[in-house]
């Protein structure tokens, strides 16, 4: 397996996105719209007594949520381009060339990671511009540019590693775009069943105790820590937990994915 082969495939995948504008737009537009609607609609949530995040405007509180929503939306689309190749039969054609199997999959994950990172930077830019519009100040969050990069890497790793692997496995199993899109609401709910939009203490009782079983909750906490508070000790703890969570889940999902891919080739 040559690095050069993977790079050639990677570049080809990136060029492919030019012709898949829907994939790029879809995973981006929904979070932006949600961001703009929610931040206006639920603005008064910040004033609710007992809200530990009452010191921040609501749009800032939900920015991490929107970032992760983008990561998840974007990752559900990470099999779209792959499915094009699978369904035309081109994927198999390439398997008989040096692109073979593993380089194709690796390059696919690399390009999806790149695409998703760019989308994440874009949504962050939107939030910074929105902040400027509201407050009149053009500024980076507490943790600075390094913080933003950390957020993007965390969110993209979660998205591609956890969601992406499952979605790609599903693509190999079903070869159907619809099947992949059908799992979409599942991840959507996962984000809602967390403190992404509403702080812990304001959630209904049952959910307060349930959020700890939601993996995306740990990601939210890390990203929110970086975004609102900067690299404090408690943020670093959250990052450690989030990274462990991502590693464990990715190990599981990539094993599932690997098995499914091998099985799909008789």
């Amino acid at each position: 397996m040559r690095l050069n082969t993977i790079l050639t495939l990677y570049v080809r995948n990136l060029k492919q996105y030019r012709r898949l504008p829907a994939v790029l737009a879809f995973s981006f537009i929904v979070p932006v719209i949600q961001y703009l609607i929610f931040s206006n609609l639920f603005n008064s949530l910040s004033d609710v007594p007992g809200n530990p995040y009452g010191g921040y405007p609501y749009y800032m509180y939900i920015t991490p949520a929107i970032i992760i929503l983008t990561a998840i939306f974007g990752s559900v689309n990470s099999s779209a381009a792959l499915l094009v190749d699978l369904n035309t039969g081109y994927f198999d054609k390439l398997r008989a060339t040096p692109a073979s199997l593993a380089p194709q999959i690796i390059a696919r994950f690399m390009s999806e990671f790149t695409r998703l990172s760019l989308q994440l930077f874009l949504i962050i830019t939107v939030s910074i511009l929105y902040h400027k519009k509201v407050s009149g100040v053009l500024e980076l969050p507490e943790a600075g540019f390094l913080g933003l990069i950390t957020i993007v890497i965390l969110a993209a790793s979660f998205g591609i590693g956890v969601v992406g692997n499952l979605v790609v496995a599903l693509a190999f199993k079903t070869k159907s775009e619809q099947a992949v899109q059908a799992v979409f609401p599942l991840f959507f709910v996962a984000v809602f069943m967390s403190t992404a939009y509403v702080p812990d203490v304001l959630l209904p009782g049952w959910l307060q105790s349930a959020v700890i079983y939601n993996p995306s909750e740990y990601l939210i906490r890390a990203v929110r820590g970086i975004f609102l508070e900067g690299f404090t000790d408690s943020t670093l703890d959250s990052i450690t937990i989030a990274v462990s969570c991502i590693i464990v889940l990715t190990a599981i999902t990539s094993t599932i994915n690997y098995r499914t891919i091998i099985k799909s080739i008789d």
């Binding site: 082969t5 050639t8 080809r12 060029k15 492919q16 035309t88 039969g89 054609k93 008989a96 040096p98």
Partner: peptide, 25 residues
């Protein structure tokens, strides 16, 4: 060349050939 000619539906003829040439190093 497989029985069903399945090629990249998102590229042009020249792009596809170029990609394959590069793929072989």
């Amino acid at each position: 060349a497989l029985q069903e000619a399945g090629l990249d539906s998102l590229s042009t003829v020249k792009e596809l050939i170029t990609f394959h040439v590069k793929l072989f190093g």
